[in-house]
Simulated scan of single mutants.
Amino acid sequence: MTTATARVRTAAAAAGLVGALALTGCSGGGGGGSKDDASPTPSAAPTSTGTGAVTGSSGKLQGSWITTSKGAVVALVITGKQAGLFVTGGTVCSGAAGTEAGMQMIHLTCTGGGKDRVTGMVDSVSKDAMKVTWSGKLGQETYTKAEGGKLPSGLPTAPVKQ
């Protein structure tokens, strides 16, 4: 593995862990089964999407998902109805994920006003992969599930720049 590849994989793992910690770090309590996270979290809802609201559970969307796009690693973390997205290079987004009008949707607000991944519709989700179509020109991305803080095998890597 080259140094650049190792850095990309390390950045992806770090982004996923930071996202998981950011979304779960303030949940209070600990241990085991929760009661559908009864305590409200006012900061979970996006503030600038203006399109609908997530009203139902995020169910199968739960977890840490990784993909690459334009040479950057993208980590999407969904916990409860909260969603966080982290892109190597500095983009950080937060918002909500779950059922809206019978569809699985993701709504994010990104730092710096990024618009690439603001509203996403989940086309399909399985135990290993999730396809999301983002509004705008970005289009569809396929994410691979990262289990236990480890990167999934077969993750594409960015070319080494010399």
Rank of each mutant, 00 (worst) to 15 (best):
M1L: 13
M1V: 11
T2V: 00
A4H: 04
A4W: 06
T5C: 09
A6L: 12
R7T: 15
A12D: 09
A22C: 07
L23I: 06
T24S: 13
G29M: 12
G30T: 13
S34T: 08
S34N: 10
D37G: 10
T41P: 14
A45M: 06
P46F: 11
T47I: 08
T49Y: 10
T49N: 11
G50T: 11
G50L: 12
G52E: 08
A53R: 09
A53S: 06
G56I: 10
K60L: 02
L61M: 14
G63I: 01
I66A: 02
S69M: 13
K70W: 09
I78M: 09
T79C: 08
G80V: 00
L85S: 15
V87Y: 09
V87E: 14
V87D: 05
G89D: 08
G90S: 09
A96N: 13
A101H: 03
A101M: 00
G102Q: 05
M105P: 01
I106M: 12
T111I: 05
T111Y: 01
G112V: 00
G112C: 01
G112T: 06
D116F: 05
D116V: 01
R117L: 03
V118D: 09
T119W: 02
G120E: 03
V122I: 08
D128N: 12
M130P: 00
V132Q: 04
V132R: 03
K137P: 15
L138Y: 04
L138V: 11
E141W: 02
E141V: 06
T142V: 11
T144N: 07
E147T: 11
E147C: 04
G148M: 03
G149M: 14
K150N: 15
P152K: 01
G154K: 15
P156F: 04
T157V: 13
A158M: 06
A158I: 02
V160M: 05
